[in-house]
Write a protein that binds this DNA or RNA. Structure first.
Length: 112
DNA sequence: TGTTTGACTGGGA
DNA sequence: CTCCCAGCCAAAC
């Protein structure tokens, strides 16, 4: 039977879509916003499925230290860094420069 | 149906 | 920020 309510994956998509241009967030921040604090891995798994959607800027989602852990899932892998640089985010050695400044926390910005 | 894996995180050193 | 260890939960095999 169909699930009328939004799935965990869908919830992740909604939050990622709300990430402002030129900003990045972490998997844990999204998971925390969804109330699944310990399920940060599921966010990454959801992003894997989100890869099918054009509306989900997965390149704006990195790990807690600003490391582009999911870049290998992009086509090509350099695409993730390239997209971030287009948004004005500096990336060095697969890591977001000035990560703290571009960090966007949904639990704070959206203030659930 | 049980085991393995994974785009992670937090705590301690 | 870095390295190591343990916990976490759902999807995939």
């Amino acid at each position: 039977m169909e699930q009328k309510h939004k799935d965990f994956f869908d919830q992740v998509y909604q939050v990622v879509r709300l990430i402002p241009k030129g900003c990045v967030t972490s998997y844990g921040a999204i998971a925390n916003y969804l109330g699944a604090k310990g399920s940060s891995r599921m966010v990454g798994w959801a992003m894997n499925a989100a890869h099918d959607l054009d509306d989900v800027p997965a390149h704006r989602v990195v790990n807690r230290v600003g490391l582009l852990t999911g870049r290998h899932h992009f086509t090509p892998p350099d695409q993730m860094q390239h997209l971030l640089e287009q948004e004005g985010i500096k990336v060095e050695n697969d890591r977001v420069k000035n990560f703290k400044a571009v960090f966007w926390d949904p639990t704070v910005e959206l203030e659930l």
